[in-house]
Design a protein around this nucleic acid. Structure first.
Length: 596
RNA sequence: GGUCCGGUAGCUCAGUUGGAUAGAGCAUCAGCCUUCUAAGCUGAGGGUCAUUGGUUCGAAUCCAAUCCGGAUCACCA
């Protein structure tokens, strides 16, 4: 009911509420009074929607609107003009109010950020398998998870960032087996191939060789399923998995070696992306641990056992199915180890919430996980939250690493960087920077384009990525916002130091007012982005702020203004916008270069 | 089949939680650099908000049904 709003809305609500109570004997709680931003054509800062009030008060809307318009300015002197039009009261605040707002807030080092402490939360993101490099899907996950972490921190939460490494299982053995058979002892060093890519090559190689064997068997007359089961590689990889689980030293040794290659590769990519974790959890360390919890649950009667010995949860009373928790041979399944991992995290950090950044294909899984933790009476059960996001697909459909149809994260980052370099060369504005500075700048812009491209879309939507249509650097993009920031930096550099004592201009231009109105919305925007766990809210806002600043910049001179009050005011406004752009971008994990 | 998610301009997406004539970007067309960074600014064209019904003073937004696309319901992870 109460939308995300700021100090003015709060003030207006309480004034209107008082007015209705005292003057019209019609009490309405402030939070039920609807304050909106008027459409662009209307020359006003805020709009009170009178219809709901009129209805319950039994007064015609236009009549009540006129009464409010007549009385409100006397109750709150900051209201310069109040007009009643077709059941709306359009309010224009005074120039003085907006100037004061700028002067007060520009020195606030935490503008938009919360000053009160919020509970500790844990955010899991990334979640790679250790048999292949990170791809575009991981990038969306990482960008969302990182940005949500930053945003939650901005509104006062202590945020613990964790990763989950899917480092064991048959798919990991596949690359190991292929390496053992075809690897000829090559290493990342000897081959010059980044560790995660090297391991990924063997994963693909396994699938290729397996397919050959299957095709050969089918040519001999076996069915698809039969051939798959009987292919020698399939049997070998199962044996390898058993050897791994039995702790076979040779298999474990190869596993550790290859996983370390992958981790070194990941570390490079994380560094490039600017992300990090407080702690990494390894499935190899938790996959056995959930069993005890399940057995306790069985003892307490929250689960049941079938005749074959397998253990199940009956969740049908809450619209979910029966869920297997332990196989008939007593081994764990995926969800069993997830329970264990959650318990471990609870013991490590005791967070009020555990947020899992995981693709929407696992929506059902997380419903089940939460339900089971609840039934086990685990203290963190209610705090489990699945931050679900839509898959990134290619025009040809889903990315399949087995078939090699993936967009590798590193490759994409490099392409973006190259594109940024091409644009920069065209514009020729940064030729005086050193080579190293230029390289860093290209990286910042390329990553800015990529991260913004992904984050500006609401997480729940799935997105199709067209590799041949390169990501844009103009319009509603990261570079546009970065450019606006750099432009302001340049302006301020030419202006020198900002004066401490300020005279305010006597009146504001409409573009200035529009920029101030947008600046005003920043705290409410952050609050909304945090509450919704939705970086897109922030990305959209930053674009609008940059857009309105560019209009201001184009329409009005700053440095050449004679009147020192106006010149100073515009510089301060520019500086404030610059700060918000830089702050907002950094919450999205996007650097804000000072030149470009 | 059950459940969940999505459907808004040619394309990619917003839409302030039920409010005024539905907005951006890209693409197309037309303008603006002897002035603070043209990765910018201004303008034009482009819409049956999937469909139908309902609730309401008022619906892209809420409800129901239908259509289309996707995911999921494994002794896989």
């Amino acid at each position: 009911m109460t939308a995300f709003s700021g100090v003015v809305e709060t003030e207006l609500r309480s004034r209107v509420s008082e007015l209705l109570a005292h003057r019209y004997q019609h009490p309405v709680a402030p939070e039920f009074i609807v304050i909106k931003l008027p459409p662009a054509e209307v020359k006003a800062d805020f709009t009170i929607v009178v219809f709901p009030l009129a209805e319950s008060a039994g007064v015609p809307p236009q009549q009540l609107a006129e009464q409010l318009a007549a009385e409100l300015p006397t109750l709150w002197p900051e209201i310069d003009k109040a007009e009643a039009i077709r059941g709306y009261v359009n309010l224009l605040l005074s120039d003085r109010f907006w100037c004061d707002f700028l002067l007060q807030q520009r020195t606030n080092p935490h503008y938009g950020h919360a000053t009160t402490k919020q509970p500790r939360v844990l955010v899991e993101f990334c979640g790679p398998n250790t048999n292949k490099p990170l791809h575009l899907g991981h990038l969306r996950n990482i960008f969302i998870g990182y940005a949500v972490s930053e945003i939650l921190q901005a509104v006062g939460h202590e945020v613990i960032r964790v990763n989950i490494l899917n480092d064991r299982g048959v798919h990991i053995c596949k690359s190991m087996l292929a390496y053992k058979k075809f690897g000829k002892h090559e290493t990342p060093e000897s081959s010059g191939v980044k560790g995660d890519f090297l391991v990924g090559e063997y994963y693909v190689r396994f699938e290729q060789e397996l397919k050959k064997q299957i095709d050969a068997l089918r040519a001999e007359g076996m069915s698809e399923e039969e051939a798959r089961r009987n292919a020698p590689l399939q049997q070998e990889v199962q044996q390898m998995l058993q050897a791994w689980e039995a702790g076979d030293p040779e298999v474990r040794g190869l596993w550790a070696t290859m996983n370390n290659w992958v981790y070194q590769g990941f570390a490079q990519t994380y560094r490039k992306l600017g992300v990090w974790f407080h702690k990494e959890y390894f499935e190899s360390e938790t996959y056995l641990k959930g069993k005890q919890l399940v057995l306790e649950g069985l003892k307490k009667g929250v689960f049941y056992q079938k005749a074959d010995g397998s253990i199940w949860a009956d969740l049908s009373d809450e619209g979910l199915d029966h869920k297997l928790l332990l196989r008939s041979d007593g081994t764990s399944v995926y969800i069993t180890q997830d329970i264990a991992t959650a318990v471990e995290r609870w013991n490590d950090f005791a967070p009020a919430q555990m947020i899992y950044t995981v693709a929407s294909e696992q929506d059902y899984h997380f419903k089940v996980l939460k339900a089971i933790c609840r039934r086990l009476n685990l203290p963190f059960a209610e705090g489990i939250h699945h931050l679900s996001y839509g898959l990134v697909e290619l025009p040809t459909g889903r990315m399949k690493s087995r078939e090699g149809t993936v967009v590798d994260a590193d490759d994409l980052i490099d392409e973006m960087k190259a594109t940024a370099a091409r644009y920069s060369a065209q514009h020729g504005k940064i030729a005086d920077l050193s080579q190293a500075e230029q390289q860093q700048l290209f990286q910042d812009i390329g990553l800015g384009a990529l991260k913004f491209f992904i984050l500006k879309v609401h997480a729940r939507k799935r997105m199709v990525f067209h590799p041949e249509e390169s990501i844009d650097f103009h319009g509603f993009t990261g570079p546009f916002v970065q450019y606006t920031h750099a432009r302001i930096c340049s302006l301020l550099a030419k202006a020198g130091t900002l004066p401490a004592e300020v005279n305010l201009p006597s009146s504001l231009q409409s573009v200035e007012r529009e920029v101030l109105r947008t600046v005003y919305r920043y705290p409410a925007t952050l609050a909304e982005a945090a509450a919704e766990l939705e970086p897109a809210v922030l990305a959209n806002y930053l674009y609008h702020l940059a857009k309105s600043y560019n209009q201001f910049y184009h329409e009005l001179p700053v440095l050449q203004v004679e009147d020192s009050a106006i010149r100073t005011f515009r510089l301060l406004l520019s500086d404030f916008v610059r700060r918000i752009l830089a702050d907002g971008l950094s919450l999205l994990g996007i650097p804000a270069p000072r030149r470009m």
